[in-house]
Amino acid sequence: MNNLNIVQIGAEALALAVLFATPFLFAALGEVFVQRSGVLNLGVEGMMLMGAFTSIYVVSSKGLGADPVIGLLVAMVVGALLGLAMAVVSVTLQAEQGISGIGFTLFGLGLSTLLFKLLAGGVITARGFQSLYIPGLSDIPYIGKILFQQNVLTYLAFALVPISVWVLNKTTWGLQIRAVGQNPAAADAMGVNVARVRYLTLIFGGMMAGVAGASLSIAALPVFQENMTEGRGFIAVALVYFGGWSPWKVMGGALLFSIANNLQYWAQNYNLQIAGSPIAPNLLLMVPYVLTILVLVFARQRRRQEPAALTKPFTRGEN
């Protein structure tokens, strides 16, 4: 019998939660930039799916049999192109952002499935990014398992958190993004090209969504099945609101959600009972969602800094 004690379970759960928080983190960090510049991209889900399919297809033997790094680059390019398209629609043409986002989600879902059917014909697998043990650190009890035995995309995702904070808060770039999101007219008056900034954040956001998809299909589970993200793109957008547009808090949200989600699987695995009776699996499955809402209610954050111009298109001279 191989029974884990509670600490071991905790370590395993955290390690898996970190792994499965990766796609949320990529997508949500990208979305932070997009929203900080005043645009809501609800098309993340579709962009993730396109990234997930194109990357594994390139890597799999049914496709090119390429190195996972190539797959990652392909996912970035595909995501960026979709982000660019979203920018044309929502920035240049000033289309309503919620609806065009849903349009992109439908488009990405449909196209990824169609390509999957035409090119792959059925479920595809590939040898993707493997776990990368950080020498020394990976041997630390528990901590090593949780933090230092992950694949390279997971390290990258978490590394991007402080980088994002730095970019947003300490660089001219970040300043421009925030200005454009807060008060585009003022930014424009100061000589910032509002449209250009929003184009760039949307392209970056699309790229990150593509990488988020790839982090599932060629890292966490090297396999693709149609609609494999199943709403994770929307969760990622929700996490941006959870984190109040702060990368650190977004990371906290992604981890909280993933940890709660992973723990409920453990609760199911070990048939967790309350007052002697087992809990229906579907009720346990609600826990991460309920918890996310509750934490937000009780955390009593400081005033969240919602970008004032979020979802508002900008036309020079109108505002």
Binding site: L16, E230, N262, W266, Q268, N271, P281, L285
Partner: peptide, 24 residues
């Protein structure tokens, strides 16, 4: 034994499997 609550959530199935593998 754990359920994902979905018929098509490939990633959730992977995660569930990994918890079970971690559990031995």
């Amino acid at each position: 034994l754990a359920y994902t609550g979905s018929f098509g959530d490939t990633a959730a199935a992977a995660e569930t499997a990994q918890t079970q593998i971690a559990g031995g």
